[in-house]
Design a protein around this nucleic acid. Structure first.
Lengths: 237, 237
DNA sequence: CTTGAACCCGCCGTAACGGAAGGTCCTACC
DNA sequence: GGTAGGACCTTCCGTTACGGCGGGTTCAAG
């Protein structure tokens, strides 16, 4: 407890010293001290100063109001615990990939980072949950291998996009076949009554329908890549 | 992603639009978009914008620096997970006590809140960890009963302090005996080479040695209570 | 009587943006 | 070709729970 915090509580009217000495120094009474104890304990439970002021303003000890607040607080904590677990899982996976010899290439790792962002943007939390469940089913090593393969495929395909490799080139056909094989393992349900889509297909749709009009640039890189994929698929029939 | 966030990244120099139109509108290039994806994914991993600027400033993809950052992040998450669990336990305990019929009295609940604050102030985290371990050993219901009894004892004793009940009164002797019996179940080790102390004894010492001089008021309520306890104990011999 | 510590007040800063005010620009429609 | 409505621009203020600094006053001990 710092004296600065006491001054802050005074400023916002949460806890003012009951008396002042002749020279202006704050003199806290016993009641102030008890109020301070309550404030501190409620803060240690994670309530905001505003919420604390609310419950302490009630006529001496409204347990009903307190119960509502603490219940909400508990729910919030549980939600954060879930997020925290997911984050921990993700961090562990990334670190394992950095440490393993399978990811010595910084560029590939950066591509992975970009894909993480794309995933979080274009999939709903439910779909990501579904994907997470699929991941646990497939096992850690399998999914890590798939991720690495995917990042590699993205890099290779982008080279072909840049070089304008014709879509009937056997190398490209092979790459796209591997892309689809990989993607088919990660079907997710679309929103509402939509048909099941692969990850790539859903990214493509959302890319053209949502990102396109709302920002002045088209998401060129991904758009080009996915359009290229489409053309190759049409060639494949 | 809001346009406001993009402007913020521009302001702090994390991500500026590569070009501007003649009228001053920001035009983001493909490279800007890739950088944005990296920024977003690193932020979703919990890194601060400053840290992100740091790793992205390195010559294209320094995996070693990234590894250090992500490892630190993981450690932080694990620490927060522990705190979060403790908080959840505490909140559940309090809510159970509000809901149970054993705590219908708002005043007693407020006293409990004050005691929480005192505990967190006067015990080191290690000691509180020790107490938590003791709690798990004793089981949930036993410890809840003890807490309720303790809050009741505090209230009753404070009445006697206020009324200046003589220390050889049988009612007071009985209360203090119960206090000590309760307290003896919660011995904690003192700091450094100190002898083992009971919770009450340690509170008393810290109360007079630390709180007293640093604040203009003595912690009257607790001091009076504990001094009274001491006097009764001396009477008991 | 001095001196060092503790207090007073007021102001600025934090992280990562959100929001409003007031003005410019772009595009679609009539 | 004018206009309407949306999207964009800059600048400034606000958020949480305090921390820190500067300049001035007060207090208790030696």
């Amino acid at each position: 407890m710092t004296v600065r915090a006491l001054r802050h509580y005074d400023e916002i009217g949460l806890l003012s010293a009951g008396e002042r000495t002749g020279s202006g120094h704050r003199r806290y009474t016993e009641d102030d001290l008890r109020r301070l104890y309550r404030v501190r304990s409620l803060r240690s439970l994670g309530l905001s100063l505003e919420e604390i002021a609310g419950v302490l303003a009630e006529p001496a000890g409204d347990l009903a109001a307190m119960r509502v607040l603490l219940t909400a607080q508990l729910r919030g904590l549980e939600a954060r615990a879930v997020q925290l677990q997911q984050l921990t899982r993700q961090l562990r996976g990334l670190l394992a990939r950095i440490d393993s010899a399978s990811m010595p290439d910084p560029d590939q790792f950066m591509t992975t980072l970009e894909m993480i962002s794309v995933f979080e943007t274009y999939f709903t939390p439910e779909q990501r949950e579904q994907l997470a469940q699929r991941r646990t089913e497939l096992g850690g090593t399998a999914i890590e291998a798939a991720r690495t393969e995917w990042a590699g495929l993205v890099e290779e395909l982008l080279c072909h996009v840049r070089d304008e490799t014709p879509v009937d080139d056997p190398r490209v056909r092979d790459l796209v076949a591997r892309w689809d094989t990989l993607g088919n393992r990660f079907h997710v349900d679309g929103q509402g009554g939509e048909r099941t889509k692969t990850a790539a297909r859903r990214m493509w749709d959302d890319n053209s329908e949502e990102i396109g009009p709302s920002l002045p640039w088209p998401a060129d890189r991904m758009r080009n890549l996915l359009a290229y994929l489409e053309r190759v698929r049409q060639q494949l029939g």
